[in-house]
C-alpha cells in the first residue's frame, strides 16, 4: 500500500529516473557523463526559461500561447537594432521592453477586456509573428549583422579546469531565471496571491486581492521570459529568424503539465516544471543517441506526456 502511494506521489519522478536508467544501460559510454548532462542543460535552457515563466500564468489557470512568437519577435528586434549599428545592450533592452509590452498587452486583453486567455493569446501569437516578419522583411538576420560578442555568449561558460568541464552561460541563465521565478511564486505574497487566483478567482477578488492588476503583471513576466528565451535562441544560432521560437510554446506547456503531475493539488510548481523540462530534454538527447527515428521520438514524447498526466489524473480521482 505504501509502495502504491509512493508511485502515486512520485510516479513522474520515478519515471524520470527510469528513463535515465534505460538510457544509461543502452548508452553505457556516452549518456551518463557530466559532459552529456551539461550538453542537455544547454540544449533545454531556452525551453526551460519559457516553461518557468509560463508557470507564472498557469498558476492562475491561464495560458499564454504567444510565447513562441514573442521569442521570435524579441530576437528579431535585437538583431535589427544590431544590424543598424546600435550597441548590444540597447538591442537586449529593446527586446526585453518588447517582451514586457507584449506581455502587458496579453494581460490587458485577458484581465481588463475579459477575453479568454486561449483566444487573446492566439490572436497576439499571430500579431507578434506578423510584427517579426514585418520588422525583418521576412529575412533571417545573420552574419556580420550579429555582433560576435552577442553570439559568443551562448558558446561560452564558466570553465572548471580541474574537471575539464565548462558550465555554459545559457544553463546558468536558465538556473537564475528558475531561482527568480521560484522566489516570486513560492516566497512572496505576490506569488501566493497568484495561487489564490488560480484556486478561486472570485473568492480572491472578494478577499481583496487585486485580481486584474496581478493577472496583468503575471502576463508581463511571461512576456519577458519569452523575450529572454528569444535572445538566448538568437545568441545560440548567431542569427534571428522570424519563426525561430515557434516550437517553444507547445513544449513549454507540455513541460508545465508534466510537472503538475508531481503536485498533489495538481498546481503548477516551478521546480516541478524543471522536472518536466528535464524529461523532455533527456528523452530528446537519449533517443537521438540511440538512433531512434525523429518522428518516432515525437510520438514517444507525446505518449509519455499523455501517460504521465493520465496516470496522475486517474490516481487523484481515486484519492
Amino acid at each position: 500500500m505504501k509502495i502504491l502511494n509512493l508511485i502515486k506521489k512520485y510516479g513522474t519522478l520515478i519515471g524520470f529516473f527510469g528513463i535515465i536508467i534505460f538510457f544509461t544501460i543502452n548508452l553505457p559510454s556516452t549518456f551518463l557523463t557530466a559532459k552529456n548532462f551539461i550538453n542537455i542543460s544547454q540544449q533545454i535552457s531556452m525551453l526551460a526559461v519559457v516553461a518557468f515563466t509560463m508557470t507564472v500564468v498557469m498558476v492562475m489557470n491561464d495560458f499564454d500561447l504567444s510565447v513562441g512568437s514573442m521569442a521570435s519577435l524579441a530576437g528579431i528586434v535585437a538583431a535589427v537594432l544590431f544590424s543598424m549599428g546600435y550597441p548590444i545592450w540597447i538591442g537586449i533592452l529593446a527586446a526585453l521592453f518588447v517582451g514586457i509590452i507584449g506581455g502587458l498587452f496579453n494581460g490587458f486583453l485577458v484581465s481588463i477586456i475579459g477575453i479568454l486567455p486561449f483566444v487573446a493569446t492566439l490572436g497576439t501569437l499571430t500579431m507578434f509573428s506578423g510584427f517579426a516578419f514585418l520588422i525583418s522583411g521576412g529575412r533571417t538576420i545573420f552574419g556580420r549583422d550579429i555582433p560576435s560578442e552577442f553570439s559568443s555568449f551562448a558558446r561560452s561558460g564558466i570553465e572548471i579546469s580541474s574537471l575539464g568541464l565548462k558550465i555554459p552561460f545559457l544553463s546558468i541563465l536558465a538556473l537564475l531565471i528558475l531561482f527568480i521565478v521560484w522566489f516570486i511564486l513560492e516566497q512572496t505574497t505576490y506569488g501566493r496571491r497568484l495561487y489564490a487566483i488560480g484556486g478561486n478567482t472570485e473568492a480572491s477578488f472578494l478577499a481583496g486581492i487585486k485580481v486584474k492588476q496581478l493577472r496583468l503583471s503575471a502576463f508581463a513576466l511571461t512576456g519577458v521570459g519569452a523575450a529572454i528565451a528569444g535572445l538566448m535562441y538568437s545568441s545560440r544560432v548567431a542569427s534571428s529568424n522570424p519563426t525561430q521560437g515557434s516550437g517553444l510554446m507547445l513544449e513549454a506547456i507540455a513541460a508545465v503539465f508534466l510537472g503538475m503531475t508531481m503536485s498533489e493539488e495538481g498546481e503548477p510548481r516551478v521546480l516541478y516544471t524543471l522536472l518536466g523540462v528535464l524529461i523532455l530534454g533527456v528523452l530528446d538527447n537519449g533517443l537521438t543517441q540511440m538512433n531512434v527515428d525523429s518522428y518516432i521520438r515525437e510520438v514517444l514524447v507525446g505518449f509519455i506526456v499523455i501517460l504521465a498526466v493520465a496516470f496522475s489524473s486517474i490516481t487523484k480521482k481515486r484519492n
Binding site: Q42, Q43, R236, S239, Q244, S246, G247, T288, Q289
Partner: peptide, 18 residues
Amino acid sequence: TKGDVAEVISRIEDAVNQ
C-alpha cells in the same frame, strides 16, 4: 528537427557525444 535551427545544434552535440 522540424524547422528548429537551434535543435540542429543540439543534435550535432548529441552526435559528437555519440
